[in-house]
Design a binder for these strands. Structure first.
Lengths: 133, 133
DNA sequence: CGCCAAGTTGACGTTAGCGTTAACGAAAGG
DNA sequence: CCTTTCGTTAACGCTAACGTCAACTTGGCG
């Protein structure tokens, strides 16, 4: 388990998540992360690290930084009244529906690729027989 | 079933797949589609339509046009020797692995959202009790 | 004939998401 | 003291994927 009080430099996080420091600074510029400063150096804590994790994960999913921002906001709701909570839940449901739709696209795409592969394998089998014959 | 010999205008396809004519022309510029011409007008056939379908599907998945190009090539293999076929199969497997990885990311993301939602619902329940109490 | 709707070809503009210098500061080591 | 090794800001550059004109043609239609 990652120590809750741990601190990280920009290059440490960059290495861990395989992104450039420049990218991390960019996320900060657009307000996705807000690390502490010691002098003018950035110091990242566990929460910052989680945010970055969500961002890179979103990237692997093809999400835009704005979409990742929404997801991050869901994690850091801290909503303290019912209205806020319901708004939050709606947002989560919406995002989940988007992802579900994406998941279905993905599955149908995988199905198509399976079929294409099967056809190729069949063609390959035929060509093998032709060679053998 | 869509008539194999059907023809479509650019705006017909644009409407069907909810993209702009400009976008379709762009796909042509980068060599993803190559419709016939009647005079200077573009006429799309069933195969062109399928290609467009693959492209928009890829877009919903967050694929780049170059990645979609690869997938399209898989469908239109026409590989006629064993070496080509094996190369094709490798390409398909690679793409499938990419998509599989994406699918796993997606599932873990959905899991997180479920959890976030559950926590929100719980908080909401507490606030309800507070109101009721 | 006049005109509109749908099509065409440039060509420049725009947004996202960083990459890439440039120019500099501060700590660590030989 | 000099040189790496991180770090910093500022600013311009770049690719992808179109959007957005402009300027024009073409086929009906009243």
């Amino acid at each position: 388990m990652v120590d809750k009080s741990r601190q990280y430099s920009i290059s440490q996080l960059a290495k861990e998540f395989d992104v450039t420091p420049r990218a991390i600074r960019h996320y900060e510029q657009i307000g996705l992360i807000a690390p502490q400063r010691v002098g003018q150096n950035r110091i990242y804590n566990a929460a910052d690290r989680i945010r970055l994790k969500l961002i890179v994960r979103g990237k692997r999913l093809g999400l835009s930084l704005e979409q990742s921002r929404e997801i991050i906001n869901m994690y850091e709701h801290g909503a303290n009244n019912a209205a806020q909570l319901e708004t939050l839940i709606d947002a989560i449901r919406l995002q989940r529906e988007r992802l579900q739709a994406q998941l279905e696209e993905l599955n149908s795409m995988l199905g198509d690729l399976d079929q294409a592969e099967a056809e190729s394998l069949e063609a390959l089998a035929h060509s093998d027989r032709a060679k053998a014959g």
